[in-house]
Amino acid sequence: MWTEDEAGPYQAIPHLGSSWQPQGEPARQSHEYIRAGTAKLLTLFHPASGAVRVQGVTSCTNAVLHPWMQQTLTDILASLPEAKVVPPAENRAIWERWQEGLSVKWTLQEKLPPLRMLLVLDNLSGHKTPKLVHWLMAQGIMPLYTPIAGSWLNMAESIQRILVRRALAGQSPTNPTQLIEWLEATARGWNQHPTPFIWGGKRRARRQRAQTQRHSLGGSGAYTLQVIH
């Protein structure tokens, strides 16, 4: 499973970060606000290994995003083991299993290649163009879209926050080229010692605590927070 997202735009202005001002004196930044351009970060993230692939850009139209996604995904697929060939009916059932429970299901192609990758994307119209979706299916990639207002389900956003904080906190870039260089260099440094991601965190812990405090009523969906004697 890989996840994809576009982060930014990030401005070429001083960014907040740890400061070393003398005790009792406030942190100071330049009083000038100069618009020196912005940059965005295209990201593909593999949670199981922690590996990330990025590309810094100054614009993020479909004409920029889609070719980068296609080339990068092609490189990733080339590094994967050969796909296991199964009977057509069984292969289609594998694809359809990942559509179970979806409120909106897009039509699968008549002939499907072996499923090789799950790709999680945000629910943006640019991610759903027929040309891109057909290309993904032809490569054996199943796109899965996060629900509206559910972008936090996309772990690419988590790695982006880490990379951006490391690259820009306390820095004062003066142009988009610097922004792109620092962001990409930070991603290269991350890939030298990547950290795998496991789904969970504070939300999962809260859900688990809530479940232990609930007492079901007569086998129904209702529950109480107090034990009924």
Rank of each mutant, 00 (worst) to 15 (best):
I13L: 14
S216T: 10
N191S: 05
A185H: 08
L136Q: 02
L77V: 03
S151I: 11
L73P: 03
K128V: 01
H46L: 14
E82R: 07
W182L: 07
T146S: 02
P14L: 13
L183Y: 06
V227C: 04
N175S: 10
E6I: 02
Q29T: 15
P147W: 05
Q99H: 14
T74K: 13
P113E: 00
E157R: 04
M1D: 06
N154C: 05
L42P: 04
A93C: 13
S103K: 14
M117N: 03
P67G: 04
N154A: 04
R214V: 01
H193Q: 15
I13P: 01
H46E: 15
S30T: 12
R97D: 09
R165C: 07
G219C: 02
N62G: 06
Q109C: 13
N175G: 05
W182H: 09
A187V: 05
L132C: 00
T38R: 09
L44N: 01
K40N: 11
R207K: 09
E184I: 01
H215M: 02
A187P: 05
L73E: 01
N191H: 05
L168M: 12
L42M: 14
W106Q: 12
E100L: 15
W68G: 00
V120M: 10
I162L: 12
T174G: 08
R206K: 12
K202S: 14
R92L: 14
N62Q: 12
H134E: 13
A156K: 01
P130L: 03
K202I: 15
H229N: 03
L225A: 05
H134Y: 08
R116P: 04
E110D: 12
F45Q: 04
P130F: 02
W152R: 09
G221C: 06
H229M: 03
S220H: 07
A39T: 07
W135L: 11
T212F: 00
G218P: 04
E96N: 08
G50M: 10
P147D: 03
T177L: 12
R165M: 09
H215Q: 00
V120D: 01
G56S: 03
N154P: 08
P22L: 10
L132G: 00
R188M: 06
R97L: 13
W190H: 10
L144K: 00
I180G: 00
P147L: 08
P114K: 03
Q208M: 13
M137N: 07
H215T: 02
G189S: 12
Q178L: 07
R92F: 12
Y33W: 13
I34N: 08
I34L: 12
K84M: 15
P67F: 03
A187K: 02
S59A: 11
